[in-house]
């Protein structure tokens, strides 16, 4: 596992809604659509700018899904990197102020369905 911690913040330039296990996200900058699966949704909902990715993996992914910490962390790094490339979230190596999100209860982890490690990549699909 990498020694440098990663802190994730959701971008303000998105529209997002969690429906069951999936999260639908659309970039307001270029209208790219993303659909996150259950694991991606768990990470997304915990991306508050102050919780390190390793803690998110431990508390929201490994405890809920059938996946080991190392596998999950490697997949998650790739996943958050892809989202960051599209400006959907930002990654920093120190805690940041989270984007104000008054959405009730949506931030709670919605994942209940176990996923195999191969499903833990996070993004179910993306298209413009």
């Amino acid at each position: 596992m990498s020694t440098a911690e990663m802190y994730l913040s959701q971008s303000a330039h998105i529209a997002a809604r969690t429906l069951g296990d999936d999260t639908l996200i659309m970039s307001t900058l270029d209208s790219t659509i993303f659909v996150l699966n259950a694991v991606g949704t768990a990470i997304w909902n915990a991306a508050d700018g102050k919780t390190p990715l390793s803690q998110i993996i431990h508390e929201r992914v490994c405890s809920e899904f059938e996946v080991t910490g190392e596998e999950a962390y490697a997949d998650a790094k790739e996943f958050v990197g892809q989202l960051a490339e599209h400006g959907i979230l930002s990654i920093s190596n120190a805690p940041v102020s989270p984007y104000a999100n008054p959405e009730k209860a949506q931030a709670q982890a919605s994942a209940t369905k176990p996923a195999r490690p191969s499903e833990s990549g996070g993004i179910q699909g993306a298209e413009k």
Binding site: L19, G20, D22, L24, I33, V35, Q124, G125, A126, E127
Partner: peptide, 12 residues
């Protein structure tokens, strides 16, 4: 993807 989400929304 939007069609898929629409289908899921209809089902739910």
């Amino acid at each position: 993807l939007l069609d898929e989400m629409n289908e899921k929304a209809t089902a739910r």
